[in-house]
Simulated scan of single mutants.
Amino acid sequence: MKITVIGTGYVGLVSGTCLAESGNQVICADIDAEKIARLRQGEIPIYEPGLRELVRRNVSEARLRFTTDIQAAVEQSLVIFIAVGTPARPDGASDLGPVFQVAKTIAHAMSDFKVIVIKSTVPVGTNERVRQTITGLTKQEFEVVSNPEFLKEGTAVHDFMKPERVIIGTTNEQTAELMKELYAPFVRTGNPIFVMDPRSAEMSKYAANAMLASRISFMNELAQLCERTGADVEQVRLGLGTDSRIGAKFLFPGVGFGGSCFPKDLQALEGADALLLLTEWNEFRSPDFERVKSTMRLPVVFDGRNIYNPGKMRRLGFSYYGIGRRS
């Protein structure tokens, strides 16, 4: 299948690369000429395990290419993914300007039927607004599909290649079948593809994020209560997570929640007064603690993810502080 992905950020680059890996002809397009130039040279602007190798292989085998010519990319493809960012505005609402700008660009470039897939995280009702925007600018036939992403930083390639579920928001049966065909290689083990109306598909993304954030926020509050009462949140977590009605995932307290913006180089610790751990990435689970200690001015560790053993850290000479754990 011939596909264009507009937006080469985290979601767009991972999605486009994985779609190429399954045999599709994929064009990743972006208005950022510098980013496209770097991608053409094999430089990956984000860190994601396995992504660099997939990009290089699919580029070398002519299934994946990068361009700033969005109009030409749209003309050459049947399926167009919108994967641009939707940053928060000062009032907290999503800035949909980039999405609608891409929709206008697609409308002006269309010369035949297209399936336009919204991969960006957007509020409920955006599918209809994108449809209205394009309808006002072209007489060509098209369909708009809502296809939310559920990628986790650090496992995004695996999440796309082996999704727990795929959600397709459309009321058009032919479009639904085309999208099922596109995703069929990724669900060969039987994981479900759910076809639903666009509004329900859009809401599913927000509902999932809200539920996960609620679990983490609850555990953070519970950790504070444990500190005040002398309980150990790690022990409480085990008792809580073995309840089948609750489950053990996303029950790890910490200092809020967020993405992978932790420095990759331990040299950044040189002369530091304290180390604050805010990630659970594997490369930070078993570091060379003697080296870490030797580079720090004061061996103080604030373990915001509770991944280190308190007793071991103190035996190694660190002043250790966890979240909701006994001192």
Rank of each mutant, 00 (worst) to 15 (best):
G271A: 09
Q235M: 06
K249E: 02
G239L: 08
R245V: 08
A272K: 11
L275Y: 06
R237P: 08
G239Y: 09
T242K: 12
D273P: 10
F252P: 00
G259N: 11
L238P: 02
V233A: 09
G247K: 01
A274P: 12
D265C: 05
T242W: 15
D265R: 00
A272R: 07
F250I: 00
I246E: 02
D273S: 15
L266W: 10
S260Y: 11
G241W: 13
L266N: 03
F257V: 10
V236P: 08
A248P: 11
F250C: 01
F250W: 01
A248M: 08
G247R: 07
G241S: 15
G239V: 05
R245S: 11
Q235F: 06
Q267I: 10
P253W: 08
I246R: 13
T242E: 14
G271L: 05
L275D: 03
G256N: 09
G271D: 06
R245E: 11
A272M: 07
G271W: 03
V233F: 01
Q267T: 13
A272S: 15
D273T: 15
G259Q: 14
K264Q: 14
P253Q: 07
F262T: 15
K249S: 02
G247P: 05
L269N: 04
F252I: 01
G256I: 04
G241K: 15
